[in-house]
């Protein structure tokens, strides 16, 4: 059995997964909205919202604003602080020929 991950590893992994989810949402929404509203027949009249073409406003400006708000939430609410520890004086020794360990132990490292 491997030991449970450190609190730093656990929170970093959680935050990375959340970030991955935000990335997926952002790319899905942005590209689908832009393609649906902006990749179209050029003969149709242009609509504007706050000076931007409507598809740019809804497809890029709005999600960009939402991502900025989420970034603020990440910075000040979601992300946890951790002690990074003291820097080791010198790099730990490197052993090229690390002996393979038995499968049971190896399994524990998964």
């Amino acid at each position: 059995m491997s030991s449970p991950p450190s609190t730093l590893v656990a929170s970093a992994r959680r935050e990375a997964l959340l970030c991955g989810l935000i990335f997926v949402c952002a790319i899905t929404y942005t590209i689908s909205t832009c393609v649906r509203m902006g990749y179209r027949d050029p003969s149709a009249p242009l609509e504007f919202v706050m000076g931007f073409p409507d598809w740019i406003f809804y497809g890029v400006i709005c999600p960009w604003a939402v991502c900025t708000v989420i970034a603020a939430l990440f910075s000040f609410v979601i992300m946890q602080d951790h002690d990074l520890g003291e820097a080791a004086e010198v790099p730990l020794p490197t052993e090229d020929a690390i002996l393979p360990i038995d499968d049971a132990d190896g399994e524990a490292a998964r």
């Binding site: 959340l18 952002a26 890029v60």
Partner: peptide, 27 residues
Amino acid sequence: SGYMVVPLSGFTILAKRFAFLSRRTGA
């Protein structure tokens, strides 16, 4: 437009772990 998530991805995916590992190993 990918830059809308660059601040999040740039500082959440690897940052904490890299900062931690570099200290732990002295890298």
